[in-house]
Every structure is written in structure tokens, then in C-alpha cells.
Design a protein around this nucleic acid. Structure first.
Lengths: 213, 213
DNA sequence: CGACACCCCCTACCTTAGTCGAATATCCAT
DNA sequence: ATGGATATTCGACTAAGGTAGGGGGTGTCG
């Protein structure tokens, strides 16, 4: 990691982008910023600059389609830490964001210095485990063992793609994808692709959504 | 349908059970009631009395595991109307409840006479389409074409069971299950079991959960 | 009754999913 | 550099998923 940080700020609202960038600019003197207003722009920016130190990602952005966009972004750039910045405070969304590999989840209304502090911690390699999401957490633990390529495969599995399509999208052979799937199933502790998809979407435990009686 | 209604009230809180039963007792003079405090008890009650006219089902009950319990109950007794009584007001939970075949969704804080009115409508064969759940509704329409047995198969597919296990649980041959699966995939407009499971859990559209920016 | 819809069962066949063993490359520690 | 652990890749094989088509049973409705 170089001396100068490089960030990508992805939000469809220019005002929010500037606010985030200036906050980080104060905390990280001399940092460089890229801006994106849609998922496609964010992808292109990461393509141009793979050495980005962190992405601040808004979930409510054109092309994101909720958490699906996060999954896609991580599928293509598994090594870049992503800090989700969202207005949705739902615990379920938060939890799933972490399951899809987010390094932190920040509320949009949080003070800017707090945001900077969290980003700094992420750059130090920390991952902000969700306090209220630690009810089950079995999946997150198992999923942490996945390699970057396996993450990509899983992300596509979760979208309903089959091995042949995944192979094409990743530019490898179908046999290779199958091998990855086998490892993924073992690491996730399930016995079929369908179960893996169920697990990966945090669906197995709607408990946190209904416990409120 | 006989002159005397028979209800099953399933809630782990005795006070709630009594309140619901007395409310229905006033609206349906001479009605008969069974009580259950867990999913297993509810199952047993339906086993004893398959001619039950309607089930009032609480989602926060031992063994329910959220909506999974609803799916299981409907899988075993597809013809019995189920009125979900829950404290969770989340639109997503509501929507999924309908997708799993609930005939109505009542908030626990609703006035008792309103509850009785809704139950009466359900007995008349009506299904309370969710007002705020009609954003996409494509799945509900397609799923409405499923026969009872196909519902059972789908419910087990959604739990991650494979054809062999489904065949065993339903007491039929694996070839039969495959035939059902083929029809289900066609009716749902998908091309693989995994996609069907994704659809069936309302996961394909996290939009309603994140749109709030 | 005949037409229809649902349910169950089966054979045969093809496609997809998943396992196993093995080759290559990288990184890291000794 | 040598060894070892891990990632990535692939081909061959076995299991499961899915399709097409046929047969038989039930109940309902006109």
C-alpha cells in the first residue's frame, strides 16, 4: 500500500459525493479520488484503477439493484475493500451486505469524522463486524474461507447462473467452475448448489426479521 | 363446508390465543376451536382434524423459524386457508407470506372485529391481496397456477431438498417429483431449480427493501 | 356419459451438477 | 534454492436434474 490513498466514491447524488470526498480529503491528506454516479461507472473506474484502496458505495444507485450490485462489484474486484454507505438502516440489509463481502456499513446520517475513522480502520485491514448481525454468523465465518475466484463463482451462482454461464463470464472452462463449486459447497457445509444459494442470501434465518413480537 | 366452523388458533402466547378465539367465537356462533402453542402442535391438530376451515397462525412461535414454518404447514395441508397473525409489519415479510400461500395477513394490533371480518372473508374463498405488496406481483400470479401437490414440491425445493428427499417425504416416486418440478419450472418461467428457489423466496427483487433513499 | 383437470407412476434420454485425481503457478518460509 | 501450502485450471467419471411421452386412476362439471 502506497503512501497516498486512492478512493472511489460511488453515489448518484453529487452533493453526497462531494461531502464524502471532502471528509476523506481532510482525514487523508493528499488522497486521490475517483467519482462514480452509477454501477457501470464504478466498474469502469475500478477497471481503470485496480489499485484503489477503498470504495465508498451507495446502495441506492442506478444499476445497483440493491445488494445485487454489491455482489457484482465484489465478484469483479474481490480484493478491493468496499464500504457501504446507505440510508437503509435495516438490520437485514446490513447483515446481507456483510455476507456479500462489504468491509463496513455506514449510515448516511453519520458524522463525517466518524466515517473517516471507519474508513481508516478498513484501510488497516479491519472489517467491521455488524454488532446486531452476529446472531448466527455461521455463514460469514465459513464464507471467509472462500478465495477471490470462489467468491466470483458464488456471486454468479446466487444470481441463478449455471456453470456454463459462469464459465463464460469468467473466461474459464466449465470443468474449472465445477471444481470451484465443489470447494464452495464443502466450505459452506452444504450438499447442493441450491442449499448454497439459500445460505448465501441469508435466507435460512428470517428470524432477525420476524423477531420483534 | 358445514354449518359449524372449525378453527385452529396457533400462537405460543395463551392470552393471544384466548383473545383470538373469543373474538371469532362472537362472530361465528357455535364455532369449534383447537389450540396450538407450537408448530408441531399445529401440525398434529391439523392431522387430527383435516376439515379445519381456517388456521390463525402466529409467525413467532417455537418451531416456526419464520416463514419456513408457514411453508411447511402449507406443504402438508395445502387446502386449509391460513391467516397469518404477526407483529412484524415489514412489507417484505408480508409479501413473502402471501407468496407462501397465506390467505391473509393480519397485524396483531388490529381490532378484534376487523380480524373476524377478515377471517369471514377468507372463509368465503377470498384472498387478501396485499396492498403494498403489489409492486411486482409477477411471481404471485405465476405461482397461483400451481396445484396443491406442486406447492408441496416447491416448498421442499425452497428448503434445499433434492428430488430424492422430496419423493421420500411425499411418499411418491422420484420420477413423479421430477415431473412436478418440470411443470413448476415452466409455470414459474425459469430454467433451473436454483432460479425457481430464488424466485420463490422473493429474493429476485431486493428493490422494495432498499428503495428508501 | 364424455371432456376435463389433477394426481400418480413409469421408461428412456439428454443435460447439468458434482467428485476425483492431477497438472501448473505463485507465494512464503526455511 | 528447496520444500510446502494454496490457488487455479482442466479432463474424466458418477450422480442428480430435467424433458418427452405414455399409461392409469380419481373427481367434477356440463
Amino acid at each position: 500500500m502506497a503512501d497516498i490513498e486512492r478512493f472511489l466514491v460511488a453515489d448518484d447524488h453529487p452533493m453526497v459525493r462531494d461531502a464524502l470526498a471532502s471528509a476523506l480529503g481532510q482525514a487523508f491528506t493528499g488522497a486521490q479520488f475517483s467519482m462514480a454516479g452509477s454501477l457501470d461507472q464504478a466498474k469502469a473506474a475500478l477497471e481503470r484503477e485496480p489499485e484503489t484502496d477503498a470504495v465508498l458505495l451507495d446502495l441506492d444507485m442506478p444499476g445497483m439493484d440493491g445488494l445485487t450490485g454489491l455482489a457484482r462489484l465484489r465478484a469483479e474486484h474481490p480484493t478491493v475493500p468496499i464500504v457501504v454507505v446507505s440510508a437503509a438502516r435495516e438490520a437485514s440489509v446490513m447483515r446481507r451486505a456483510y455476507e456479500f463481502g462489504a468491509s463496513a456499513y455506514i449510515d448516511k446520517s453519520a458524522p463525517l469524522d466518524e466515517i473517516a475513522a471507519i474508513v481508516r480502520a478498513v484501510l488497516d485491514g479491519e472489517i467491521f463486524a455488524p454488532p446486531e448481525a452476529s446472531t448466527g454468523e455461521t455463514f460469514a465465518q465459513r464464507a471467509a474461507q472462500l478465495t477471490p475466484q470462489q467468491w466470483r463463482v458464488l456471486a454468479l451462482m446466487v444470481q441463478g447462473d449455471q456453470n456454463k454461464q459462469i464459465a463464460h463470464k469468467l473466461g474459464v472452462g466449465e470443468a474449472t467452475v465445477k471444481a470451484h463449486v465443489t470447494v464452495i459447497l464443502r466450505k459452506l457445509g452444504v450438499r447442493s448448489r441450491t442449499q448454497a444459494v439459500i445460505e448465501a442470501r441469508g435466507l435460512a434465518l428470517p428470524a432477525t426479521e420476524t423477531i420483534r413480537g
